[in-house]
C-alpha cells in the first residue's frame, strides 16, 4: 500500500512538472514550443543508471567505476536540460519568463525521477510485478 501512495504522489508531482513545462510553451505571451525538446532529456536521464546496473553484477561493493560514470552522464543530461532553455532564452527564441517556467518544470520532474529511484530503486527483491 505504501508503494501505491508513493506512486500517486510521484505521479502528481510529475504532472505538476509537466504543467510547468507546458505553461512555459503554451501561454499566449510565449507560444513557442521549442522547449518541449527537454522531454528527450527526461527520457534519457535514467538510461546510464540502467546500463550500469545491468553491467555491474557484484552488489557487495559500495561503488564501482561504471556506476560512477553513469552518475557522471546522468548529471550531464540534467545539466543539459537546464542549459537548453537558458540558451533558447539568450538567443531570444523564447522569453525569459518561459525559460523560468521550463526551469521550474525541470526541477520538479528531475526531483520526481529521483524520488522514483529512492522509493522503488531500493531492494532487489521488490519487483515491478508486486504492485
Amino acid at each position: 500500500m505504501a508503494g501505491v501512495k508513493a506512486l500517486v504522489a510521484l505521479s502528481f508531482s510529475g504532472a505538476i512538472g509537466l504543467t510547468f513545462l507546458m505553461l512555459g510553451c503554451a501561454l499566449e505571451d510565449y507560444g513557442v514550443y521549442w522547449p518541449l525538446f527537454v522531454l528527450i532529456f527526461y527520457v534519457i536521464s535514467p538510461i546510464p543508471y540502467f546500463i550500469a546496473k545491468r553491467v555491474t553484477y557484484d552488489s557487495d561493493a559500495t561503488s564501482s567505476a561504471c556506476r560512477e560514470l553513469a552518475y557522471f552522464f546522468t548529471t550531464g543530461i540534467v545539466v543539459s536540460a537546464f542549459g537548453f532553455p537558458v540558451i533558447l532564452a539568450r538567443v531570444a527564441v523564447i522569453k525569459w519568463g518561459a525559460c523560468g517556467l521550463v526551469l521550474a518544470g525541470n526541477a520538479v520532474i528531475f526531483l520526481t525521477i529521483q524520488g522514483f529511484f529512492l522509493v522503488f530503486g531500493r531492494g532487489d527483491d521488490f519487483s515491478w510485478e508486486q504492485w
Binding site: 552518475y71 557522471f72 548529471t75 550531464g76 545539466v79
Partner: peptide, 9 residues
C-alpha cells in the same frame, strides 16, 4: 561524480 558532471557539462 556528480560534481565533475556538473563542471564538465
Amino acid at each position: 561524480s556528480i560534481a565533475a558532471g556538473i563542471l564538465f557539462f
